[in-house]
Simulated scan of single mutants.
Amino acid sequence: MSISRRNLIKLGALAGALGLSSQKILAGQAAGRARNPLRILILGGTGFIGPYQVRYALSRGHQVTVFNRGQREADLPAAVEFLRGDRDDGSLDALKGREWDVCIDNPTRVPFWVRDAGQILKGQVGQYIFVSTISVYADNSQPNASEDSTLETYPGKDVMKETSKSLAADKSLYGPLKAACEREAEKWFTGITTIVRPGLIVGPNDPTDRFTYWPVRLARGGEVLAPGDGHDPVQIIDARDLSEWMIRMAESRTFGTFNATGPNYRMSMAAMLHGIRATNSAGAKLNWVSAEFLKGQKVAPWSDMPAWLPGQGKTAGFGSRDISRALAAGLTFRPLSTTAIETLEWFSALPAERKAKLDAGIEPGREAEVLAAWRAQQAGGST
């Protein structure tokens, strides 16, 4: 169906009223069946991004198989084929003797998982998409650094002996092990590998609350502790934008390595928090507190103040990775307002016990204490 100039203008006006872009509306209208249906294998598939990948792939006419332990509930459509196994103990028999056009590896954090999958799937898949992380980089001090930057190296003797349990016990290994996974992927799927390095993944169904904290906190109103001076850069990616883009990358058989975060402009912490605050009428007041003072108060970046790292020193470039490759490969973004509103709607519908305590963000009582100490210092009193 063609769209007249008059209707295009109307769509643009509607988009403005809803906080959307006419580009996004048109993209949604144009979405349909893929020209060449694919057989897609998703390792995992029941976590945060997996269900979004599954539903989008099915809507595009692809066949979807998910492989996992079956221990996590997921409301996936009946059209999905389920295969069971455990990559921790090498139970991968369900994958043997099968072929797929593309394999998307979502949950892998230890390289022997890639090796074991590679031993079975090498020559059986036409593309291997590995979900990595921007935490693989050895240096986060330089803004606008590209995918060609130096990666972390594993500090131990035998990286293949690391397990998912040991990673959970030592989070400092997350980046080095993901980097080792990437190298293993290139080894087994040479020439057909797509490495996706997301930033902070956000949106409805996020189990970490690392972005959710802010829509929830700003909707509560009152005096809000805000980190830094507001100028520190922030990068996030809505799980739906990431998932849908990865399916399109499979459709186009796009290979290479991509920083997958956003938005497609430089977003400061102030811009993010003001943007989220604008989606409700609670009238929260943002109190910007210096990174130095927060450090003295033992208020930790990223955990107590989610999504934020100081824009100076060793973390100066963490929130400003170069994403030009991903943009050129078709990565698009829904508005921040949409992500914020729909994240809050999702969280508000959760059971009371789940909402009682967020997994990220400073506790309300502690927030009030830090703000009181900050005001005392500003007034010339004792800290």
Rank of each mutant, 00 (worst) to 15 (best):
A282L: 00
G16V: 04
Q312A: 06
S166Q: 13
T153L: 13
R35F: 08
E99D: 14
G85P: 03
A185W: 00
S166C: 11
F130A: 08
E363P: 04
D105W: 03
L43S: 05
Q23M: 13
L286G: 01
A260N: 01
P77I: 03
D241C: 15
K157N: 10
R220H: 14
T338K: 13
T46G: 03
P301Q: 09
I42A: 05
F347K: 02
K161P: 01
W113Y: 11
G330M: 14
A180M: 01
A13H: 14
D232R: 03
P107D: 06
S252A: 15
W100R: 02
E342C: 05
E186Q: 09
A185H: 01
V299F: 15
I3T: 15
Y56W: 10
R33Q: 12
N7T: 12
K157E: 12
H274M: 10
A307K: 06
R375H: 15
M267V: 04
Q377F: 07
F211V: 00
A168T: 13
V80K: 06
R35C: 08
A34N: 03
E152Y: 06
L151V: 13
Q23D: 15
T338N: 12
G97W: 04
E162Y: 03
V196H: 11
V66I: 12
L200E: 07
W100T: 00
V102C: 13
A250G: 06
A349E: 07
G19E: 03
R87E: 00
E353V: 08
N280K: 01
G256V: 11
V224D: 06
V125Y: 03
G44W: 02
I104A: 04
N259W: 02
P107W: 06
R210A: 07
R334I: 04
P198H: 08
T212A: 10
A340R: 04
F130I: 09
P51T: 09
K171I: 15
K187N: 10
D101E: 02
H62Y: 08
T208R: 11
L344V: 03
K298I: 15
L18I: 09
I236Q: 01
S281C: 11
E147F: 05
G28W: 10
G365C: 10
T193E: 07
Y154T: 10
D232F: 02
S21T: 09
S132Q: 08
E353C: 05
T279P: 11
I362L: 12
S164I: 12
G361P: 02
S59V: 04
L286D: 01
R266W: 12
